[in-house]
């Protein structure tokens, strides 16, 4: 009986069909259409002509693209470790169920439910010169306020602060979940050995959640490479493009310069980067499920 249930039947495929049609029409086709566009000189409002790899050459020769790529990489290199470290710290600190910790968990996750535009509004009101919270504070204590949103270096940093504030909830929750899974006997054994808290952390806790750390890192890499709204609204990529991320470059080329072909070519580079990260994620997660089976 079970055999017939498992027997290969075309009709069983009907369960997959609805999703598959969405997948093909809305993801696979645009993916190939994007490649087609990237090989054409085409603007927002009309058909183009074939230019081969011309758009790719132009993208790679564009210092603004290279700068945006570098910004995105720097952003990921700084924001992801911050998110992982802070998330891990909070998870360790709140890994007990009391009133206070439940409240704090809720608090730290709450920013994640806000829209990006609310987040950027909040942080603009913190960072803007003159009226911002930080200016008011620095004037109270008598130090020269920094122009966070318009100084090279600080502007990307400010976008990063807003992003970490916004995204911190998820890593914390994932780490908390992982901490709950560590078998108690490991800790009991450690307690018998009279191990110091630090030793327990480095020898028991961290190794036990190593895969989660890896997974969270990769999820965050994928997410933070797609940075767009925060930078566009808070700094508009400035000053001098020093906070313009890759996705904003694509948006500007496509919708402000009308150069859809070039934007599509730049999109393919973004795709390649995420593809590599996603492959890494796949490898990590399959290793995990094999281990747990």
């Amino acid at each position: 009986m079970a055999e017939s249930y498992r027997r290969s039947q075309w009709s069983n495929g009907l369960f997959v069909l609805p999703y598959l049609s969405f997948f093909l029409v809305l993801l696979v086709f645009p993916l190939f259409w994007g490649v087609w566009l990237s090989l054409h000189k085409v603007d927002l409002f009309g058909p183009g002509r074939f230019v081969g790899f011309g758009n790719y050459v132009r993208v790679l020769a564009d210092p603004v693209f290279l700068q945006a790529l570098r910004n995105s990489v720097i952003f990921v290199l700084v924001s992801v470790p911050s998110l992982v470290a802070l998330g891990l710290f909070l998870a360790l600190a709140l890994n007990k169920t009391t009133r206070t910790t439940s409240f704090l968990r809720g608090l730290f996750f709450s920013s994640s439910v806000l829209s990006v535009t609310i987040v950027t509004l909040i942080w603009r009101f913190v960072f803007i010169p003159g009226d911002g919270l930080l200016t008011v504070i620095s004037e109270q204590i008598g130090i020269q306020p920094v122009n966070f949103l318009s100084t090279s270096g600080w502007s990307l940093f400010s976008v990063g602060v807003a992003t970490v504030w916004w995204c911190l909830g998820l890593p914390m929750m994932l780490f908390l979940a992982a901490l709950q899974q560590i078998p108690t006997d490991l800790y009991e054994a450690a307690a018998l050995d009279n191990a110091s808290p630090w030793r327990v952390l480095t020898r028991v806790t961290l190794p036990s959640i190593a895969r989660t750390i890896m997974l969270v890192t990769i999820i965050q890499i994928v997410m933070q490479f797609q940075l767009f709204g925060q930078a566009q609204i808070m700094t508009n990529g400035g000053p001098n493009g020093s906070s313009r991320p890759l996705v904003m470059y694509i948006y500007e080329v496509g919708f402000m310069r009308w150069d859809v072909g070039k934007a599509a070519a730049a999109s393919e580079f973004l795709f390649l980067i995420i593809l590599v990260a996603a492959m890494a994620q796949y490898v990590v997660s399959t290793r995990k499920s094999e281990a747990s089976e």
Binding site: L27, P30, W33, G34, G254, S267
Partner: peptide
Amino acid sequence: LAVPEQAVIIA
């Protein structure tokens, strides 16, 4: 899973 929304948004 590896296709970011942003990469197909223009198309």
